[in-house]
Amino acid sequence: MTDEPRQSEREMLDQLEAMRAPRTRIRAVAALLAGLAGTVFMTSLWWSEPGPLPVRTHLSFALLTVFCLAWAGYGGWLLMRRVPLFATEQVVAAWIALTASVATTGVSAVAAARSGASLVAALATGGLFMAAALTLAVRAHTRRAALLRRMRQLAQKEQA
């Protein structure tokens, strides 16, 4: 009698993983290609700029290139994984987005302050991106915790 619920739980998990896999693969390829394209674009733009660039400009190009490489690395990591991730990929993506939005807001605020542009506009725009990234990070952590909790429950039922 206990074998039947275990079997249906396993089937349910297998079906969920099978339904999720193509979407995860597409996201991985998109992140990898976008990251690589962004890296190529940023480095070609950076090195094709005429004349000596200020240090701040070099730092900005470097920071944007690092963000593009992070997305490419994330996409490559997803493609290399052959085991269920239990929403880990969403947590990683949310943290990359949050880090990028915080750093970009900081760079924008410094640039606005130095150029005399509206600091309020730079902080408001950056704040919107940071709030969105933080919301995604919280949701990803919550979803991952729920999936891990469910996995532990199923493992305990299987042992019983």
Rank of each mutant, 00 (worst) to 15 (best):
residue 85 L to R: 13
residue 85 L to T: 09
residue 86 F to C: 07
residue 86 F to D: 14
residue 87 A to T: 11
residue 87 A to G: 07
residue 88 T to H: 11
residue 90 Q to C: 08
residue 90 Q to Y: 09
residue 90 Q to R: 12
residue 92 V to W: 05
residue 92 V to G: 00
residue 92 V to T: 02
residue 92 V to D: 03
residue 93 A to C: 01
residue 93 A to H: 11
residue 93 A to Y: 10
residue 94 A to W: 15
residue 94 A to D: 06
residue 94 A to E: 03
residue 94 A to Y: 15
residue 95 W to H: 12
residue 95 W to D: 09
residue 96 I to Q: 03
residue 96 I to P: 08
residue 96 I to M: 05
residue 97 A to W: 15
residue 98 L to F: 15
residue 99 T to W: 14
residue 99 T to R: 07
residue 99 T to P: 05
residue 100 A to Q: 09
residue 101 S to M: 00
residue 101 S to F: 15
residue 101 S to D: 04
residue 101 S to K: 02
residue 102 V to C: 01
residue 102 V to D: 04
residue 102 V to K: 08
residue 103 A to H: 13
residue 103 A to E: 04
residue 105 T to G: 01
residue 106 G to Y: 13
residue 106 G to M: 00
residue 107 V to Y: 11
residue 107 V to I: 13
residue 107 V to L: 13
residue 108 S to G: 14
residue 108 S to A: 14
residue 108 S to L: 09
residue 109 A to F: 09
residue 111 A to S: 13
residue 111 A to T: 13
residue 111 A to H: 09
residue 112 A to H: 06
residue 113 A to H: 07
residue 114 R to D: 13
residue 115 S to D: 14
residue 115 S to G: 15
residue 116 G to N: 02
residue 116 G to E: 03
residue 116 G to W: 11
residue 116 G to C: 02
residue 117 A to I: 03
residue 117 A to K: 11
residue 118 S to M: 00
residue 118 S to T: 02
residue 118 S to Q: 03
residue 119 L to P: 14
residue 120 V to G: 06
residue 121 A to L: 09
residue 122 A to K: 02
residue 123 L to P: 14
residue 123 L to D: 04
residue 126 G to H: 03
residue 127 G to E: 01
residue 128 L to G: 10
residue 128 L to S: 13
residue 129 F to Q: 08
residue 129 F to Y: 15
residue 130 M to R: 10
residue 130 M to S: 03
residue 130 M to C: 12
residue 130 M to N: 07
residue 131 A to K: 03
residue 133 A to R: 03
